[in-house]
């Protein structure tokens, strides 16, 4: 197999890896916000259930969670899981990352002094305005470094989709490496993940700079 055929079949895997990455970010970041609000709910029962959810998501391997999301419906409900693979992957990744993002957001919320809420209340801002105009921008600034870490981890974690035999880049690299007895696919995979994370770090640094204008 020539280097260019190797690259082109891996390129297709890269697109799939990117799809997992982008869709997971798109789903898990807003979902994490909801989970954070549930985690801070004034109803104890809601808080406790959310805590358990977060504990499970953080306390068990993502690989295992992916298997559960994929095979669970079949074993539990006898559901036909053909064509369900990609959905299971997105569910697994999004639900897992939402838990991590929720905890990051929660940490960020706790850095905001109560005086900010009180000033906003006295000035007449309603709850929604207070959150989106006053609190959230400050939370975002506070959590950017942790979010960067999390995103970099996600780039590498996309390779876990091989567990469900989804042909993302890492799975293809393994197949080619086995069939061609070549080490090259792994080198290409390594370069890909590294470059992707280099890009992530670059973009995040830009965003952090954009928040540098105060404090």
């Amino acid at each position: 197999m020539s280097f260019s055929t190797m690259l082109s079949s891996m390129g297709e895997g890269m697109l799939r890896s990117c799809a997992i990455f982008i869709l997971t970010i798109l789903f898990s970041m807003p979902l994490g916000m909801i989970v954070m609000f549930l985690r801070r709910s004034r109803f104890t029962i809601v808080r406790e259930i959310t805590k358990i959810y977060i504990a499970i998501m953080r306390g068990t391997p993502l690989m295992l969670q992916l298997l559960m999301w994929y095979f669970g419906p079949y074993y539990l409900f006898g559901m036909n899981i053909r064509g369900y693979r990609f959905t299971a992957i997105l569910l697994g990744f999004s639900m897992n990352y939402a838990a991590y993002f929720a905890e990051i957001y929660r940490g960020g919320m706790e850095t905001i002094p109560v005086g900010q809420y009180e000033a906003a209340e006295i000035l007449g801002y309603n709850k929604v305005q207070t959150f989106f105009k006053i609190i959230l921008p400050q939370v975002l600034k506070a959590i950017l470094p942790s979010v960067t870490n999390e995103i970099i981890t996600l780039v590498k974690d996309t390779s876990l989709a091989f567990t469900l035999a989804y042909n993302e880049m890492f799975s293809i690299a393994k197949q080619i490496a086995a069939s061609q007895t070549s080490f090259m696919p792994f080198v290409i995979a390594g370069v890909f993940y590294f470059a992707a994370n280099y890009l992530v770090a670059f973009i995040m640094e830009r965003i952090e700079k954009a928040f540098d204008y105060y404090k």
Binding site: P113, G115, E118, I122, Q138, K215
Partner: peptide, 19 residues
């Protein structure tokens, strides 16, 4: 909310919006 418009409050710690 209407009544709240009648008063303002200046805090010991200022509580300006830093951003």
């Amino acid at each position: 909310s209407q009544i709240k418009r009648y008063f303002g409050l200046v805090f010991q710690q200022f509580n300006l919006f830093p951003h």
